[in-house]
């Protein structure tokens, strides 16, 4: 049954969907029924542009273990990039 466990991150970036690249403005993170992975529940991330309709979506469905691994690797990558002085670039991208 649906868990209704859902969180949303407001994000800025680009995603590549079925119709090509589009601007992202949110990532919906749920632990609920997936559509494809052979699990009853999965950690689902939908990168979306809410203003562009339901089809503006890049979807991933992950096992809980791989989702944690991904989260750790994202943070580790950002920490390293920050340590090396690279993160000032993102301010330019958002302008």
């Amino acid at each position: 049954m649906c868990t209704m466990i859902s969180h949303q991150a407001k994000i800025f970036g680009s995603g590549k969907g079925t119709a090509g690249w589009f601007e992202l403005n949110a990532a919906n993170v749920t632990y609920d029924h997936p559509f494809h992975i052979r699990l009853e529940h999965a950690l689902n991330i939908d990168f979306v542009n809410e203003a562009a309709g339901p089809g503006a979506r890049v979807a991933v469905e992950l096992t809980p273990e791989s989702a944690r691994e991904l989260a750790h690797k994202i943070l580790a990558t950002l920490d390293q990039a920050e340590g090396d002085g690279w993160l000032h670039e993102h301010h330019e991208a958002q302008e």
Binding site: C2, S6, T30, P54, G55, A59
Partner: peptide, 19 residues
């Protein structure tokens, strides 16, 4: 009322909204 697209895309939007 959630808009139209593939059933999966529409359902994903509803899933994120808590049903």
């Amino acid at each position: 009322r959630e808009g139209h697209g593939t059933p999966e895309d529409v359902a994903a939007q509803v899933r994120a909204a808590g049903g």
